[in-house]
Design a protein around this nucleic acid. Structure first.
Lengths: 160, 160
DNA sequence: TGATAATGCTGAAGGAGATTCTGTTACAAG
DNA sequence: CTTGTAACAGAATCTCCTTCAGCATTATCA
């Protein structure tokens, strides 16, 4: 599906989507129009979902990041649970396998705003419990990578 | 720090960073050069961290998304723990407050590749336990929002 | 209060880059 | 061997980025 050219182009776009097609072409070994065509294809194929600016949470007034595990009765996409996604503080929302039903990634002004959000969550029918993990420090936060080929097994197995 | 113009510009760039300055200007009520100047300022101020392409994990060969809680002895940025960030499968890495020390967001080819990664994590000194939450379904995944003003308290408080 | 400087805007203009077009090559199918 | 398709390079056009010159507004300070 993706050849080496595509991976190099995607790698460049993930690193900096502001690069000119000519410069990406140098890096990938293609002409600017060739890169243009491939990017257009990758877009319409859905490989590139969107091109967006990444913002600093602190600068936009939301310095507190937290992961919230939400326990629910029932499963999957109930209309009620989808309400959680309507809060602008909620950035991600995944149903997961494990000892909880849902994991939310939320960003708020501070601890009080988080408490306020949690109170709102409990109003939703089906929400039975929650556990919050407040982020103290982020050591890594990068977009989905495409340029690294994952030939499994890739890392040496631990001895023993 | 950020006025209403900035928020509108940021909102547009988060939605689609490929928009022309002229079009953003229409939306925000400014001329193209004004938008250009503001974006330059927002970049150098660090409000805009980067502009990147968001890729579809499945299309790039990493369909399995999981959150991994890692328990460690000791805290903070030990050089050993930082090794976790060197795996290309690890997209995010946060130290958190709660009943675990570290939360990782990882994306792998499949369950076996996840197991393989976990085995690698246990090789790192200081790692004592881990719990994985495999994502079954993602209902929401959006970048940091800046256009929504968070006037706390914003949501009506639940009536007891 | 009034003079001066600084900031931030608009509209025009030049230049860089995006996008289209044409011709060519490589490869696959018949 | 012939034909058709896919994908590329180079040239050309056209859009948009980026700079520049003035102007309005606001802040600073005498």
């Amino acid at each position: 599906m993706l050849d080496a050219f595509d991976r190099k182009i995607l790698g460049a776009l993930v690193e900096d989507a502001g690069l000119s097609y000519a410069r990406i072409g140098e890096r990938a070994g293609l002409s600017a129009p060739a890169v243009f065509e491939r990017v257009k294809r990758l877009r319409s194929a859905g490989v590139i979902e969107s091109v967006t600016a990444r913002l600093d949470g602190e600068s936009v007034g939301k310095p507190l990041l937290a992961f919230v595990h939400v326990d629910t009765t029932g499963w999957g996409k109930s209309e009620r649970l989808m309400r959680m996604g309507e809060f602008p503080e909620v950035e991600e929302m995944h149903s997961v396998a494990g000892d909880t039903g849902m994991i939310l990634k939320v960003r708020t002004q501070g601890p009080q705003a988080l408490e306020h959000l949690l109170l709102q969550l409990y109003v939703i029918p089906g929400v039975t419990a929650s556990r919050s993990y407040v982020v103290l420090s982020t050591y890594l936060d990068r977009p989905v990578q495409a340029d690294v080929t994952l030939d499994w097994p890739k890392h040496p197995l631990p001895k023993e």
